[in-house]
Simulated scan of single mutants.
Amino acid sequence: MKVQEIPCRTILNPTGGFLGKGFTHSINLYRGCALGNTLCGMYCYAQWNSFHLQGRRWGSFLDVKEGFLDAYHSQYDRLKRPKSGEAKPIHIFMSSVTEPYPPQERTTRRTRRLLETMLTRPPDSLVIQTHTPLVVNDLPVLLKLRKLCRLHINITVETDFPALPKPFQPHAHSPESRIQALRTLRASGLHTVATVSPLLPLRDPWQFAKDLESSCDRVILDHYLLGDGSPEGARTKQTVFPQLLIDAGFEEWTTLDKFHEIVGIFKEAFCDANRVGVSQEGFNSEC
């Protein structure tokens, strides 16, 4: 894993496409991913972004952005403290491409430092999307920030399998550890969202749905056929991932029929359809 610092002139990036209906900006403090060689790296939609790859193999590098605080300050002030005209809304999705809590966050503290500066320059709303339980480490600053803006913490839990059979890679963090993180954050008063995205095979769909219902305020389900950023999951279909699922005996999980069946189970388990979001509409409704 090659880790290097790269300059950053802008950090608030205008949204469009999948997140364009609910958010004004996205933030990505890292480029590449230290989780790229784990299960989530096998299906991660960011691995097809040639701008980020620059000819490198996904999972082999992590670029750490420098100058992000100055960039946030200047962009925020232009939007919220303009010399003329009215202030503009800032609704942030962090992160849209790269994990905000890679293992390196323990020492680089990019995400924590940005959250701390948001205490003096808060957005109107902030969604933190992560695949790890490490977000719990920032609980003290998150509790302060929730008083200043609409704050949601999204944690991906895409399956209840402790491990999928080989050749699937192991989890970076176990599903149970991520569910426990949701419980901890929710018990502290934060709004928590489990993102089953993309939906992977489940051992016990009903029990999984009930476990999440008791651990988070809301759930968003997605499938690569809907949400990988291409028509009918064309990007994912170009990879070996769907065939690996078929070879492992999980062919039905590559269909939308199965996906909609699981959505129905979740709506029943959550006892409130408003607590269950689906794909693009589900993510964008968070603002």
Score class of each variant (00 low, 15 high):
115 L>V: 00
120 T>C: 07
195 T>V: 14
284 N>P: 04
147 K>C: 06
11 I>C: 12
42 M>P: 00
40 C>N: 13
47 Q>G: 09
140 P>N: 02
153 I>R: 09
266 F>L: 02
72 Y>F: 12
227 G>W: 03
220 I>D: 03
156 T>H: 08
11 I>T: 01
221 L>Y: 05
63 D>M: 07
11 I>F: 02
48 W>Q: 15
257 D>S: 11
227 G>S: 15
285 S>I: 12
269 A>K: 00
227 G>I: 01
238 Q>T: 14
188 S>E: 01
269 A>H: 02
8 C>Q: 12
272 D>T: 06
158 E>K: 07
259 F>C: 13
146 R>C: 13
53 L>C: 11
92 I>F: 06
10 T>K: 14
37 N>A: 09
251 E>K: 15
30 Y>F: 08
266 F>H: 03
215 S>A: 13
45 Y>G: 10
178 R>K: 07
240 V>M: 15
240 V>S: 14
226 L>F: 13
177 S>F: 00
263 V>N: 15
8 C>P: 13
152 H>C: 08
217 D>H: 06
225 L>Y: 01
226 L>A: 02
91 H>C: 04
230 S>M: 07
87 A>E: 04
65 K>G: 12
286 E>Y: 05
267 K>Y: 04
273 A>M: 13
124 D>S: 10
2 K>H: 13
195 T>N: 10
72 Y>A: 12
17 G>Y: 09
20 G>K: 03
272 D>A: 08
187 A>D: 14
181 A>C: 12
228 D>H: 09
136 V>K: 04
170 P>R: 07
